[in-house]
Simulated scan of single mutants.
Amino acid sequence: MTMAKQYTTRTKASVPAAAAVGLSDVAVRFRSRKRDVTALREVSLDVAPGEFVAIVGPSGCGKSTLLKLVAGLLKPSSGKVRLGGEQVDGVRHDIGYVFQRAALLEWRSARRNILLQAEIRKMPPAQARGRTDELIRMTGLAGFEDAYPHELSGGMQQRVALCRALLHEPPVLLMDEPFGALDALTREQMNMELNRIWRETRTTVLLVTHSISEAVYLADRVVVMSPRPGTISEIIEVGLDAEREYGETLGRPEFRDAAAHIRDLLGAASAHD
């Protein structure tokens, strides 16, 4: 039996009626003075409510572009993008978005950086404060809520950014290399924290990452993208329980086989891992 046969893979997912995120034959083309560039072509993907999907692929394959489509920050050149069955026709304010940089306001404490989301959305103050307290406890920031960004480690800054993105309880959380700038140990800790928070909130998550290990550890499914113009090469069912102890999970055959298969697909013997 070849390794590829150990996985349920597909280039187009079936379309569940209640998909949290749906992309149907999406293409994105950019026009410059010198040439036209196709960033994505024929991308079809459906993500179930509460599912965690990671997206990996070579640099420039359109991973971040895909997230921008879901967020409504970019319009597809062709095809359809849907959130909760509703077509995305403009910027979506109901989602959460976490970037590689925490982008905190230096003159605001951790708590007030989180509450910035509430101010923008005009959330009821009592509701916003209660939700902020809940998220601070959930992310292990208790005791640091009054600290300013320069007093926080990189990992803690990203926890604040995650709290800010989750404050309004978004149905979908988009994460674009959120841990890429962290050291290896902090990144592992944040992976464990994110897994726990996802299990508690059951928010639908789309994560873009260059780390194969991170993708397999965190996700229910891993979408493997081709070089530009990006399309979906395979979708890998990871096959691990939702609750995952980090060290034990990395030693499991399912983890090793999935990671090795993705590495083979990417030709990524030297991939960030």
Rank of each mutant, 00 (worst) to 15 (best):
M1T: 10
A4T: 05
Q6Y: 08
Q6S: 14
Y7E: 05
T8Q: 14
R10D: 08
K12D: 11
A18R: 14
A18Y: 07
G22E: 15
G22C: 09
G22H: 11
V26P: 11
V26Q: 10
V28Y: 10
R29D: 14
S44Q: 01
D46S: 13
A48F: 05
E51T: 03
F52E: 12
F52H: 12
A54H: 13
G57Y: 04
G60K: 09
S64D: 01
T65S: 15
L69K: 07
G72D: 06
L74G: 04
S77T: 15
R82Q: 15
D89F: 07
D94S: 07
G96A: 06
V98I: 05
L105Q: 01
I114M: 05
I114H: 07
Q117M: 08
E119M: 03
P124D: 13
A126G: 05
A126F: 02
A126E: 14
Q127T: 10
R129V: 04
R131S: 01
T132F: 00
D133T: 11
D133K: 10
E134Y: 09
G140I: 02
G143K: 02
F144V: 02
E151Q: 15
G154F: 00
Q157C: 15
C163V: 01
M175W: 08
N191V: 06
L194M: 15
R196N: 12
I197A: 04
I212F: 00
A215N: 11
P229W: 03
G230H: 06
I235Q: 13
E248F: 06
E248D: 09
T249H: 02
L250T: 03
R252D: 14
P253I: 05
E254I: 03
A259D: 06
A260Q: 12
I262T: 07
L265W: 02
L266Q: 00
G267I: 00
